[in-house]
């Protein structure tokens, strides 16, 4: 099914990979820069690479901090990717202390690793589903498919019920968050080959 998917353009680079991937699976894509532009879309993606503080500052600049929160109330799906997932949380400790969108209660903290494990974590990992609920969006994750991660920080939700899947990088970390229609994934579906494309295709099947 073709969906109208909004991609939030908040001047953080690399919206192009996610745009191409969404189009490849048949969706229409729109770069959105104001709350008004998300009125008629079917699903919203908050992409993101780079620093948390810049991300939240830029969202506020275009009023999308409030825009996203209002959008979520409408019940339509929101997908946060990587930094976009971390921005959903209450607080981040990346270079100081910064408030997030508070859609999911919890913190963003640097991954603690021992000497032998490289940081940033860059590579392919599978996620382990820890929740009983089934979502069509994540059907194929049970097949142990790997996704592409690149990050040094991770989400630590207060309520474990918000964690849908974990992955292991020296310790179990949050791979996927699901809270009603708010979805966050630490990996990049747009760079995760056919496993990621399948997820993006079913973005509204939550």
């Amino acid at each position: 099914m073709t969906l109208k998917v909004g991609i939030i353009d908040y001047s953080i680079c690399n919206l192009y990979s996610i745009e191409r991937a969404l189009r490849y699976v048949g969706h229409e894509t729109y770069f959105v820069k104001s709350p008004k532009e998300i009125e008629n879309i079917d699903a919203l993606v908050l992409p993101g690479v780079g620093a948390f503080s810049t991300g939240i500052k830029n969202l506020k600049k275009i009023n999308m901090d409030k825009g996203i929160v209002d959008y979520v109330k409408s019940g339509r799906p929101l997908l946060g990717i990587c930094l976009g997932m971390q921005l959903l949380m209450s607080k981040s400790f990346e270079f100081g202390e910064h408030d997030g969108l508070n859609l999911v209660k919890g913190k963003v903290k640097k991954i603690e690793v021992n000497n032998n494990i490289p940081l940033p974590h860059v590579g392919w990992k599978h996620c382990d589903i820890i929740k009983n609920t089934k979502y069509k969006l994540f059907n194929h994750i049970e097949k142990n498919v790997d996704f592409y991660f690149t990050h040094s920080y991770a989400c630590f939700p207060e309520d474990h019920a918000d964690i849908f899947a974990t992955f292991n990088y020296g310790q179990d970390l949050t791979g996927i968050i699901v809270k009603n229609n708010v979805i966050g994934c630490q990996f990049h579906p747009e760079l995760s080959s056919f496993a990621g494309l399948e997820l993006l295709k079913n973005i509204n099947n939550i």
Binding site: V25, W124, H140, V145, D146, F194, A195, K201
Partner: peptide, 9 residues
């Protein structure tokens, strides 16, 4: 170990 190729779509 390496990534296993998945062709689902």
């Amino acid at each position: 170990n390496t990534r296993k190729h998945y062709v689902g779509i």
